[in-house]
């Protein structure tokens, strides 16, 4: 019975949703200090290419590749974060967009390493590798009553689900911590925050690096789920797509970009039945949304309303102060 419920198609869509949610979180982190960064597609590319190249050329385990890709993207985040500290708003957006393009052009031109525009194929697939490893230990998915490909996609989905939940939990926790408060203070008024004794340089670079780290992580996952990457995957279209997750869902609370990524990834799939018109409807939905709710679908008010409607739980310390922001 379990086997009939598990359709790789739905799991595949769900996997892309989860990766997009991680990307949405990455842009939310930088936005939570009031910095608009469009470099996330570039960081994603760094993560994806690093992991793919390491696993392809040196036969490293996927997990090592993913960690290396994530860390390298984080390092780049710090390197870009420091010099761009003085920039704000549109200027920062332009510089970071430029950075993303530079990364893409490097991937295109560094042909000996990245195979240029043709892209890297045959990247180890997360689920298939896992299946092969488990098979070496004598495990067979048939024990669970599953086909091989059902097991592969179920494994990917569960891994991504676990990872995504941990990431969201971590950043929700961080929001309520000293770091999160500092981020919020900087977002509201940098000068005031500084006069309160918050080290602006540290926190802004921290947010930037965290964003880069998470984007790089998503990129590395992307490479091992799709098993093929090319520079065109990390062009500015991707940067804008990630930004839309936050703009559509709302960037005030972490659930905004999460919902944005979920909704905007599901929509083209749901609209498949109208085939060539689906992207028109997709565009129309975004326009209507922006006209009706420019602050994004999910904001603090909506969350409070949801909380009121759901059975009341024990009030935790510090949640009340969050509402007033």
């Amino acid at each position: 019975m379990l086997a009939e419920l598990i359709n790789p198609y739905y799991l595949q869509v769900a996997s892309f949703i989860l990766i997009n949610i991680i990307l949405g979180v990455s842009i939310y982190i930088t936005l939570s200090t009031g910095q608009l960064s469009l470099a996330n597609a570039g960081f994603m590319g760094i993560g994806a290419y690093t992991s793919a190249l390491l696993t392809l050329n040196f036969d490293l385990p996927i997990i090592v590749g993913i960690l290396a890709g994530t860390l390298l993207a984080g390092v780049f985040g710090i390197l870009i974060g420091i010099p761009t500290l003085r920039l704000q708003g549109v200027y920062l957006a332009i510089v970071t967009l430029g950075f993303g393009e530079v990364i893409r052009v490097i991937f295109v031109n560094w042909e000996s390493m990245t195979k240029g525009a043709v892209g890297l194929s045959g990247i180890p697939h997360m689920g298939r590798e896992l299946l092969n490893t488990l098979k070496d230990f004598g495990f067979d998915p048939k024990i669970l009553g599953l086909q091989n490909n059902q097991f592969v996609f179920l494994a990917i989905f569960l891994i991504l689900l676990g990872v995504t939940i941990s990431i969201i939990a971590f950043f929700r926790r961080q929001n309520r911590s000293r770091v999160g408060r500092a981020f919020a203070a900087i977002k509201l008024d940098e000068k005031a925050a500084e006069s309160m004794g918050i080290n602006i340089t540290y926190y802004k670079v921290l947010a930037f690096a965290q964003g880069a780290l998470v984007a790089g992580f998503a990129g590395a996952l992307f490479a091992h789920v799709l098993a093929y990457i090319s520079p065109a995957d990390f062009a500015y279209h991707r940067a804008v797509e990630i930004l839309i997750f936050a703009v559509f869902g709302g960037s005030e609370v972490i659930w905004g970009p999460v919902f944005g990524a979920l909704f905007l990834t599901v929509m083209p799939e749901v609209l498949r039945f109208i085939s060539e018109y689906r992207y028109m409807i997709y565009g129309l939905i975004i326009i209507i949304m922006m006209a009706v709710r420019p602050q994004g679908l999910i904001d603090v008010n909506i969350l409070n309303w949801v909380k009121l409607k759901t059975p009341k739980r024990r009030q935790k310390h510090g949640t009340s102060s969050q509402k007033s922001i």
Partner: peptide, 14 residues
Amino acid sequence: QDQALTAAQKLMNS
């Protein structure tokens, strides 16, 4: 690519 892959999954499995 990702859209092509989900389309393929739909065709093959659904």
